[in-house]
């Protein structure tokens, strides 16, 4: 096998004396799409947030490319420039227009010139089907539109990895598809993606691999066909019985 792009080795995270991640080890190849599934409180968000250092791992190692995130003196900002994140509740900047939401980070962090950043942003907004909303404020958008802007905003930093934490969980049902479609086409561009999701159909269709977390333990780490048709653990079977 080729040299994996992301390597996670015995990752632990605790909050006080609550052990949330109890030694997770896996690898993710460049261009792979990973679905992270598991019951509430199993540590899915925490796991994801360790990959862009919104949470600091308690122990273990995480590499992205040649950078070890868990090394002493890692440049957190440099890591985050390379790892985009999309949140359940969008977190768009409400006082900035859609266009400003998308251009703010490239201009501020990377020093991209304003007109260059705006051109890029318009292209990104086109790719998520929202170029006509460039001058609107976020509160004028539907949930699905907000989330697509949030995806464009993250992509504007040209990251190599994209993290999604339940990107469709806060949406009305009729808006789930438009967001999943954007993610699907992003996956087709070869983006490396880690997606916490409850959309089993989407996971089945788009993911290259499913990570099933339960109680902070990585219980299954298999291709979706295997996970959905023939899970090896009782815990995964119980979980699937409940959600399918």
């Amino acid at each position: 096998m080729s040299n994996p792009y992301i390597k996670i080795n015995n990752l632990h995270k605790s909050f006080g004396n609550l052990d949330v991640l109890k030694g997770i080890s896996t690898t993710i190849d460049k261009g792979e799409v990973i679905a992270i599934i598991g019951p509430s409180g199993s540590g899915k968000s925490t796991f994801l947030r360790c990959l862009n250092l919104l949470e600091t791992p308690t122990s273990g190692q995480v590499w992205i490319g040649s950078d070890e995130l868990t090394a002493k003196g890692t440049d957190i900002m440099k890591v985050r420039q390379n790892v985009g994140m999309v949140f359940q509740h969008f977190h768009l900047f409400p006082h900035k227009t859609v266009l400003e939401n998308v251009t703010y980070a490239p201009i501020t962090v990377k020093g991209v010139e304003k007109n260059v950043a705006e051109k890029q942003a318009i292209n990104l907004l086109k790719s998520v089907g929202l170029s006509d909303k460039a001058n609107q404020y976020p509160n004028r958008l539907s949930g699905g539109q907000k989330q697509r802007v949030a995806i464009a905003r993250a992509l504007a930093m040209a990251p190599d990895v994209m993290l999604f934490d339940e990107p469709t969980s806060a949406l009305d049902p009729e808006m789930v598809k438009e967001v999943l479609d954007v993610m699907k086409s992003l996956a087709h561009t070869g983006m490396t993606m880690a997606i916490v999701t409850h959309e089993m159909g989407f996971a089945k269709e788009v993911a290259d691999r499913v990570l099933f977390l339960d109680g902070g333990v990585l219980v299954e780490d298999v291709p979706p066909e295997e996970f959905f048709l023939n899970p090896s653990s009782q815990r995964a079977r119980d979980f699937l019985d409940k959600v399918l």
């Binding site: 862009n52 900002m77 994140m85 949140f87 703010y104 501020t108």
Partner: peptide
Amino acid sequence: VDKGQREAAEALAIPYKPMMKDIILPQ
């Protein structure tokens, strides 16, 4: 100000000063 605003800014690698000045303080 919603905690998510800060997280979104941090996830975008926005440094502390511009985050406060442009994102948090206006809100």
